[in-house]
Nucleic acid binder design. Structure first.
Length: 463
RNA sequence: GGCGCCGUACCCAAGUGGUUAAGGGAAGGGUCUGCAAAACCCUCAUUCGGCGGUUCGAAUCCGCCCGGCGCCUCCA
């Protein structure tokens, strides 16, 4: 099988993936600050990393996937004032909401870490950085000294001098350099705080991911991931801090960044009103359609949201699912056995090529196409091949996390009612009372039940 | 102003030096069917924003131009 290659933002090239510890992969993905409902942009990264984990595991690695909740931060404090609940309650409320969203999309749980539960390692890291002369204290704040690191800017490929020109932010005169950033912030009255050598305060944004990833994995861990919008300043600063702390340039081996999800040509972010919330998306479309939509484009490209695109994805997903379920009905239980070698190889080539899920999906579609072909011929001695295709497609679906199983079992009452209606309507059809039969089908369709009259009788499913 | 990305059919999209340019959705025709739906078959880019260049050969490399976008400030 081909070698897995992953695009690394720092070196701007595809890297032959080789974990630090043979057989084991450590991945740290920046989570989020739980202070508002999540939107599809968050789900893009979550779905991608879910597929990455499944694939890595498939090719033989043990995967440890860590993600953080930045559960104390300015935005949470602001939110707590708006909602009249404590910052801790804000964090708990929105992180729970987020975990529900992930579950609804079939995303495997990460190993979650929380900033507020890890103050000692964060403070210890800051102390060490100050000790090394790479950070300084001013009135209870601690700032990272960007000029102490000649390589500052290497991830985002920008120079301090260039950034000064564009910086139109209010410059804090107490800082040595305008780009110096806070790694510890002194608490103002009423704000949540933790004791530290610089007085009560909380960690600055960026330091938590450095501290937590190094705590969980140690230096030179395998993959650090996040959205493109985190490249600067978040990941740039993480690198600067971590390397200052470690005193060597080996923080993470590969930096993976996924593209943004845009709506109406604008990036979705929580500071804009134009967001497609996960809840709204899930109310309107099945999880499988959302995953198909998100995985249909290379993860590094920006992707635009539109209802039309989601509808396309839903039609495509329904076709895949309907074909598989029909095949399983026709084949009964006789589907055990291996998958198709050639198709699997094609799928693997795609996945090993920097997780090319779009190409992998094309293989899935071809697999289903071949299966439909056999079914259109009424199977006729091709049961073995059909079963092989079913296994192959289900295997691909497993890697991509596509929920092909029927949505939910119907209650016995519904099953009996439908059977009765279908039988009654069948009587009408035999008596050639087509107008009445059609009107029944039409009425059922209006309430979301689709009747399909086939050669072997009438079947029904939710539409 | 700085850094970076993108422009492939009606829409989405893979492909980054060499067989007929994946796949999905839509559309049109056909098969099946009482009809509808589903499924199957066929059609749907001699061409990859434009113009030059490199090469035996380019959608793929280089240059210029046109158009769109992201980041540089909170962001996944």
């Amino acid at each position: 099988m081909s070698q897995l290659r992953i695009y690394d933002t720092l070196s701007r090239q595809l890297i032959d993936f080789e974990p630090r510890d043979p057989g084991r992969v450590g991945i740290y993905a920046c989570g989020l600050t739980p202070q508002a409902p999540a939107h599809l942009g968050h789900m893009r990264g979550a779905v991608l990393m879910d597929v990455v984990r499944r694939w890595l595991r498939h090719i033989g690695y043990e995967v440890d996937f860590v993600q953080n909740f930045t559960d104390v931060d300015d935005k949470i404090i602001n939110r707590s004032r708006e909602e009249g609940i404590s910052p801790a309650e804000v964090a708990k409320k929105y992180s729970r909401l987020y975990l529900n969203d992930l579950a609804a999309l079939g995303i495997e749980p990460a190993r979650w870490v929380y900033v507020t539960e890890n103050m000692p390692v964060i403070i210890e890291m800051i102390e060490k950085i100050v000790e090394r002369g790479k950070a300084y204290e001013v009135d209870g704040d601690v700032y990272f000294r960007v000029q102490s690191t000649p390589e500052y800017g290497k991830l985002s490929r920008r120079k301090l001098s260039d950034m000064q020109a564009g910086a139109r932010i209010e410059v804090d005169e107490r800082k040595e350099h305008p780009m110096d950033f806070a790694i510890w912030k002194a608490a103002k009255p009423g704000e949540p705080s933790w004791d530290s050598p610089w007085g009560p305060g909380r960690p600055g944004w960026h330091i938590e991911c450095s501290a937590l990833s190094l705590k969980e994995f140690g230096a030179d861990f395998d993959i650090h991931a996040g959205g493109v919008d985190l490249i600067f300043p978040h990941h740039e600063n993480e690198i600067a801090q971590s390397e200052a702390y470690l005193d060597k340039p080996q923080f993470a081996r590969i930096w993976m960044h996924w593209g943004s999800v845009q709506l109406a040509e604008r990036k979705m972010s929580k500071s804009e009103d134009v967001v497609m919330g996960v809840r709204e998306a899930l109310e309107r479309f099945p999880a499988g359609a959302i995953r198909l939509y998100l995985l249909g484009t290379g993860y590094r490209s920006p992707i635009e949201y539109s209802d039309a695109r989601m509808e396309d994805a839903q039609r495509a997903f329904d076709r895949l699912r309907a074909a598989l379920n029909r095949a399983k009905q026709m084949l009964g239980d006789a589907v055990e056995g291996p998958a198709d070698d050639d198709l699997c190889k094609r799928f693997a080539e795609a996945m090993n090529d920097d997780f090319n899920t779009a190409a992998a999906l094309a293989t899935l579609h071809d697999t289903i196409g071949q299966l439909n072909e056999r079914m259109a011929e009424g199977l006729r001695g091709q049961e073995e091949r059909a079963a092989e295709l079913v296994r192959t497609a289900e295997w691909f679906g497993g890697i991509l996390g596509l929920p092909f199983e029927e949505p939910e079992a119907e209650s016995a009452l519904v099953e009996k009612l439908m059977a009765a209606i279908i039988e009654w309507r069948q009587e009408l059809r035999i008596q050639k009372q087509f107008a009445v039969a059609d009107s029944i089908r039409k009425d059922l369709n209006a309430i979301g039940v689709l009747l399909e009259d086939g050669p072997e009788g009438t079947t029904w499913r939710r539409s």
